[in-house]
């Protein structure tokens, strides 16, 4: 498995660049992943989305339903795509240190 250094720590990553062990994640790591997903600067709005996803994942073991993410952050889908060009599942979840979403869709 490939490894990558993020914010001074080594991480195992899958072929799509998702980090494998979410427990070592911190905001510096998130900020270091961000440019790989087309996010040049992590603003307060970016952190609002990333932290919500991360907290939900820690409580429920999966990313939140997209509509719940929008409702809880107050951002619509258009805004989320503006913040994360590769979308909530690929971009925001990856920056939040979640494993790659499984599934068919």
């Amino acid at each position: 498995m490939a490894q990558i250094e993020l914010a001074g720590k080594m991480f195992d990553i899958d072929e799509d660049g998702f980090i494998q062990d979410a427990s070592d994640w911190d905001e510096n790591v998130g900020a270091a992943i961000a440019p790989t997903e087309g996010v040049t600067e992590m603003t307060e709005e970016h952190w609002k989305v990333v932290n919500y996803i991360r907290d939900y994942y820690l409580e429920f073991g999966v990313a939140p339903m997209v509509r719940k993410l929008c409702k809880s952050t107050g951002f619509d889908m258009k805004k989320i795509y503006e913040l994360f060009p590769s979308g909530p599942a690929k971009g925001a979840c990856k920056i939040a240190g979640l494993p790659k979403p499984t599934g068919c869709v």
Partner: peptide, 28 residues
């Protein structure tokens, strides 16, 4: 991966949504 997640995974579904998250989503 999807089929194994359904047949052998803890969550028994292709999106790996645990029961507590499913219940939370239904409530929402």
């Amino acid at each position: 991966i999807s089929v194994n997640s359904q047949l052998e995974g803890e969550t028994r579904n292709t999106s790996a949504i645990p029961r507590i998250a499913f219940l939370d989503t239904l409530e929402f």
